[in-house]
Design a protein around this nucleic acid. Structure first.
Lengths: 247, 247
DNA sequence: ATCGTAACGGCACTGAGTGCCACTAGCAAT
DNA sequence: ATTGCTAGTGGCACTCAGTGCCGTTACGAT
């Protein structure tokens, strides 16, 4: 491919006589251009480095791997989420807090729609990138689960409930994100996410305590309904719905 | 590292003058031995091939990558799950079917506890293996979600509910699997999984219809309880628990 | 015994990622 | 202005995963 290159020790041919601090950005831009041009796998690090006007070695100083160019600063984002959860009101409903955290994560995508859309296009097509993204999502889920474990501590099946609820919230987030991406960034994702997390919270809070502030008053309720379900099924549901209110 | 090797064209030194059909198994055994001995990353494919008495090239004929030795036949397992779901009773409760599918997956681990334990040890320590496993779990989750999407089709928020429920079931499965692995294979994982999926099904079925066969009879229920929850909260829960029975 | 096929081993090659080192731009102290 | 230090950089050589190609060999069928 290279025709008659490599004669003199390369007099820093193209651009950027000596990169300032935009080196990282220059590499990222060049890389994404190349990826869009000729695909991820067909693009070598050498090509990226040359297009960015830096040495191949410098590329790996700014990005641990070729995949990392596509997911910049995922670690920092995760750290922000951890911080957000640690600073959350300890008395607030745990699932509500998680919903806010999910919205925060979603916000990171919404901030730069074009980038998010391009990235999703890449991840859809390249298996290794897809795997990397899934692994990164899993890290968020672990953080969520850890938070819930702490909040649920002492309750029966705390770990199970934490794991399931964290997975549910993440799934809701991912679902909304996918919809937003498919809509080309037009969807009101924040509203959709709130609706989704509300549904999740409703379903889980109906069965499991999630730490909402308890009331001291008491209540006697009489309900009468007409339904096509069998008496047994209705009784089962009512009994279950009430059981956890007793605690 | 290699001392004075490579003189004659290698007279097939060690073992297995010419592998029968146990070549794959021989490679896997040799690989896992080496991994346990000196770690995953520190073991090269050459070492594995030599220990197995085969050529380096043959290794890659049986395993697509070094990681693949640790996860044999994951694709086939996934296909079995797909088959199981496709052959499931279309009238059965969808979450119950998913619970059975999860138990089937869990069964694959329970079948060979020693292998599962060793593998989990490896995946815990090696990031690349961990990522690979997460990606593989995600494939199951996608299959689950696809099944639920088909079952929920037509209902409001079908896709959201499918995604969340699939994630919940997978999370329940993973939680039980982790517990079982931590217990060293002693835990009654099947019972624990049934308990876990029951909880998930209970929580979600209380809110969302999951396709359980409807009865034709009717029922009028009167319930009276004493609870520390506020009247509003009780009413909300009861109303929600009953609402979906109406449909 | 011979032929055909499929598996095998060796070889060479690409490309990712790493360690090492020499070079240089920029800055501070004198 | 000169000197000296430091940090960023680029080149080089190396390891190792993974792939394509091809000659060879074991084995079953006839």
């Amino acid at each position: 491919m290279s025709e008659a290159v490599a004669a003199a020790p390369k007099p820093r041919s193209g651009r950027t006589p000596h990169g300032r601090r935009k080196v990282r950005s220059a590499i990222a831009v060049a890389a994404l251009e190349k990826f869009a041009e000729q695909g991820f796998e067909a693009t070598t690090v050498d090509q990226i480095a040359e297009a960015a006007g830096v040495g191949r070695r410098t590329f790996f100083r700014y990005f641990r791997s070729k995949e990392d160019v596509v997911f910049p600063g995922h670690d920092e984002r995760l750290a922000e989420v951890v911080e957000l959860l640690e600073g959350a009101d300890p008395d607030a409903d745990a699932l509500l807090v998680l919903g806010e955290a999910a919205e925060f994560v979603l916000g990171m995508y919404l901030e730069e729609p074009e980038v998010s859309l391009k990235r999703s296009e890449l991840t859809r097509q390249v298996p290794s990138l897809r795997d990397k993204e899934i692994a990164s999502i899993d890290r968020y889920q672990r953080v969520f689960a850890r938070y819930l474990r702490a909040r649920f501590a002492g309750q029966p099946d705390a770990e199970l409930h934490a794991a399931v609820a964290a997975a549910a919230v993440v799934a809701a987030h991912n679902h909304v994100l996918r919809q937003w991406l498919r809509s080309g960034g037009e969807l009101d994702a924040r509203a959709a996410l709130r609706h989704a997390t509300d549904q999740v919270a409703e379903a889980l809070a109906g069965q499991w305590p999630t730490g909402e502030s308890e009331q001291d008053d008491e209540a006697v309720v009489v309900a009468a309904v007409r339904t096509s379900a069998s008496a047994g099924v209705v009784l089962k549901h009512v009994r279950e719905a009430l059981r956890d209110l007793e605690r």
